[in-house]
Amino acid sequence: MFWINGLLNSLAFGAILFLLAVGFSLIFGLMRVANLAHGAIFMLGGYIATSMIGFGFLAAVLAAALACAAFGGLVERSLIRRLAGRELAQVLGTLGLAFIIADQCLLVWSGDPIAQPAPALLRGTVEVAGVVFPAYRLALIAIAAIALAAIWLLVERTTLGARIRAAVDDREMARAMGIPVSRLFTTVFCLGAGLAGMGGALAAPVMSVYPGLDAEMLPLALLVVILGGIGSLSGAFVGSLLIGLIYTFGQMLLPDLAYVILFLPMVVVLAARPQGLFGRHMA
C-alpha cells in the first residue's frame, strides 16, 4: 500500500515536473536560453488560477496558461531579443525577471499559502483492483501523458514542428531556407511559458501556492533537464519521472535529506553522460 501510494504520488509529481521542464528544455534546445524565470512563471500560473477559480477550474487553468504564454511572448520580444547572441546576459536577465515576478506575486497574493480546491468532478477517489487512488492525481498523470503526446505530435508531425526541429539542428540553415526563425522563437517561448503556467495551475490543488514555490521548483526543473538532456522530449519525460520518484520517496523515507538524495542521480548521470541521458553532444 505504502509503495503503491508512493508510486502514484511520484507519478503525479513527475507529471507536474514534466509540464514545467518540457518548456524549459524546448526553449533551451531551440534558443540556447536558460530561462531562469521558468519557476516564477510556474508559480504565477498557480496564483492566477487561484484567483480565477470563481469561473470554474477549467477556466482557471486555461486563463493561467494563456496569461503565462502571453507573458512569455512579451519577455521574448522585449528582453531576450534585445540581448540576442549574449548567452550570459540572457540568463541573468531572466534571473532578474524571476526576482521581480516572485516579489510582485508576494505583493499581490500576500505571503500566506493559498489552497486551491480540485474540480468537483475529480475530488473523489477511484478504486482499481482493490486499491483506492485520489482521482485528481490520476487525472494529472493523464494530462501529462496527453501533453507528452501532443507535444510529440506537434514536433514530429506538423509543419511548425518540422521548422522547430530544423532550427534546433542549424539555426542559420533554417533561416536560409526561409523559416521565420524569429517568429518561431516567440512561439516556442509562448509555448514553454504557457506549459509552465498550466503546470502551476494544475499543481495548485496538490501543492497549493506559496512564496518560495518558484525557488523550490526551478532547481527541480534544472535537474530534470540536466538528467534527461537538453532539448530532448523523451529526456524531459524520463527525467521528470526519475526526479518525481526520487524526490517523493526521498521525502517519505528520509524527510530531512530528500534534497541530498537529488544529488545522487545528478552525480551518476553526469559522470557517465555529461550531455544527459537523451542529450546529444553539448557545445
Binding site: A215, L222, I226, Y259, L262
Partner: peptide
C-alpha cells in the same frame, strides 16, 4: 557554459 551555471544553481539549492 550554461550547463555549468545550471548545475551550480541546482547544487546551491540542494
Amino acid at each position: 557554459g550554461l550547463s555549468f551555471l545550471m548545475i551550480t544553481l541546482a547544487l546551491g539549492q540542494i
